[in-house]
Design a binder for these strands. Structure first.
Lengths: 260, 260
DNA sequence: CAGCCTTATATCCAACTTGCATCTAACTAA
DNA sequence: TTAGTTAGATGCAAGTTGGATATAAGGCTG
């Protein structure tokens, strides 16, 4: 039998298979603190709880494609904007009981965007929810990430209306574990990769870059040492322009320039 | 409607879904060089080509469980031995055309084991293949990994019977990409994690540890600096015993002791 | 406009880390 | 005993890092 014959006779439905979804950890900064986009579930299971936006993977789209679709449909992004956000696959979660409906395996993605874009995404996601006549719209949750080295500790999410961080949100499914892994990954990659720039606008000052690092790591860093390391790395190109609107010496603005 | 009512009425078959497999990159050292377990495909598609061992994910097993099952069924490991090998999830591959039969998403796993266990696994995998009356049994492929920093370059696999490395093996599906990612991940984690110990026996000398690092990285390392770094890390406990059978000064044997 | 306040940026130094050469120890074989 | 070989220790120069301090550059205030 040739390979063509084999493929013609093949029955794709011969074996039962788990369902496959993608879930998206869309992170940004809110007032200098790490935050994540959550949607409140209006349907069973776990109705009322907060969850990461996600979707079933269709047969005609890749995993990355499904993650992009979630970004478009649930965060209201235009295709061109989607292309500009940082996206990476995090991990695939396949515990047997992670969804009470049936066996569902989910591929978790991490998406990052600058503070301004993140704020816009939250607003548009709320509009998407209203258009769909959904009672509770999406919302950002502020993250509380205790410092326990780069590994990251247990992550708690709080509603924006809970500035004192009294009652952590109860997340649906295993989304708390996914969120914790996202933060851990972000922390681990922060120092040797270019993820931090995904959280900054096109032009930024060294202080802003340091603020992003400090917000993600949850520690304070030594300023001269940080500047030296960042500049020596050769990823920063001075724009020549200066920060505007300060009442003190304005800082040089830099752009991220891909190494080589 | 309550959540229970919802779940009773839920139709799991409502949407078409991709098939889900796990593929295993089982790595070890052969004569001090990195090697991987490959099986020659006897069935379509890609009959005759070399492939990573894998299997469809069943509804009643986790992803990790499926990877362990592949280790048992295709490499002939006993359940107790499976528990002792290092295993970690690598990445999930979901390109639309990665399998000509149908849409198949695969979760790739990396498994590591010491040189002796790897040799035994190869022998048992061959026995498993013979018992299944499969023409071509499994085989180790030696890897040729050019040095291009920790990122790793394009990985080529060669049959053990091709010591001059003339004709790289043609791998089935996207398994060459999976293999390349496995090597890259291994290189990246080598220095800050404990993966290297998964490639060593229970007791080992500092020279053996350095040999493993050099084999994976493809470079030579400075001996005193390497010793210092490893000992300062606090992961190594001297056993008090010495290497035997040398015709020169025998080295101290160490055990890996989990930090904290 | 001079001085003040605040933050950016540069410089300096001591402590620590790393690469590397060299020295000493321990074993076998002859 | 001596030569040969590798393990393990030590010393040093060069590079890196944390942290204090000095200088620069804005706007603001009187």
């Amino acid at each position: 039998m040739t390979e063509d014959d084999f493929l013609r006779a093949y029955d794709p439905a011969a074996f039962a298979r788990p369902a496959l979804t993608v879930d998206l950890v869309l992170m940004g900064l809110r007032a200098g603190r790490p935050a994540v986009l959550l949607v409140q579930r209006t349907q069973h299971p776990h109705a009322g709880r907060w969850a990461l936006p996600g979707s079933f993977v269709r047969l005609d789209e890749t995993l990355d494609g499904a993650a992009e679709r979630v970004l478009r449909d649930k965060a209201g992004f235009a295709p061109a904007e989607v292309a500009e956000t940082h996206r990476e696959q995090l991990y695939t979660f396949g515990a047997l009981d992670r969804d009470p409906r049936m066996r569902i395996v989910t591929v978790a993605y991490l998406a990052l965007m600058p503070e301004a874009a993140f704020a816009a995404a939250l607003a548009r996601a709320a509009a998407v929810a209203r258009a769909a006549a959904v009672a509770a719209g999406p919302s950002a949750a502020l993250l509380d990430v205790p410092w326990s080295g780069e590994a990251g500790g247990p992550v708690a999410a709080f509603a924006p209306g809970d500035p004192d961080r009294r009652t952590p949100l109860r997340l649906a499914f295993d989304h708390a574990a996914i969120l914790a892994l996202a933060v851990q990954r972000l922390r681990g990659k922060l120092d040797y990769s270019d993820v931090a720039f995904a959280l900054l606008p096109e032009a930024f000052t060294l202080r802003q870059l340091q603020d992003v690092h400090e917000a993600i790591l949850g520690t304070s860093l030594n300023k001269p040492a940080f500047r030296r390391r960042m500049l020596d790395r050769g990823w920063l190109a001075p724009t020549g322009a200066r920060e505007a609107g300060t009442s003190f010496r304005p800082a040089e603005l830099y752009r991220f320039q891909k190494p080589l």
